[in-house]
């Protein structure tokens, strides 16, 4: 399993990588949406990323743009949105862009792992049908 982390704040990216490493999950990171999209398409059709963890509020293109581009490259990939300020508007917008789950910052390691597990399980359950 490999996860793409998109966040402009390096310390958040680092935190996530460390948590996921402990669970044996590999992760690549991108500091911006452009970088994330490049990583996603550069890996080719092999679809080596199993999940995207993206921040919402970023300078330049935001998390919603990331979701939109990711869906173009890899339509079925599970996406979790990370936000420090979860509002109904963010959720509505996320829903429109078809994010699969949300996680509110700050989170504990257990909460992140839990969200990743739940999302991938849900995704597998749906595709398994």
């Amino acid at each position: 399993m490999k996860i793409l982390i998109v966040d402009d704040d390096a310390i958040v990216v680092q935190s996530c990588i460390r948590i996921l490493e402990l669970e044996g999950i590999k992760a690549s990171s991108a500091g911006s949406v452009e970088m994330g999209a490049k990583l996603l398409s550069a890996e080719g059709a092999s679809a080596s990323f199993d999940l995207i963890l993206t921040d919402v509020k970023m300078p330049g293109q935001d998390g919603f743009e990331m979701i939109r581009q990711a869906r173009e490259i890899q339509p079925a990939i599970p996406i979790i949105m990370m936000t420090g300020y979860l509002t109904t508007r963010t959720m509505e917008k996320g829903c429109c862009y078809a994010a699969d789950n949300y996680i509110a910052k700050p989170f504990t390691p257990d909460e992140l792992i839990d969200a990743v597990r739940k999302t991938t399980l849900r995704q597998k359950g749906e595709t398994g049908k």
Partner: peptide, 24 residues
């Protein structure tokens, strides 16, 4: 409050993460 909270949340994520990781 919203602005401050949003900015605080990122470092707080790191503090929480690494505290937990050390405690492990």
């Amino acid at each position: 409050a919203a602005g401050v909270a949003h900015e605080i949340n990122n470092p707080l994520t790191a503090v929480l993460t690494f505290t937990h990781l050390i405690l492990r």
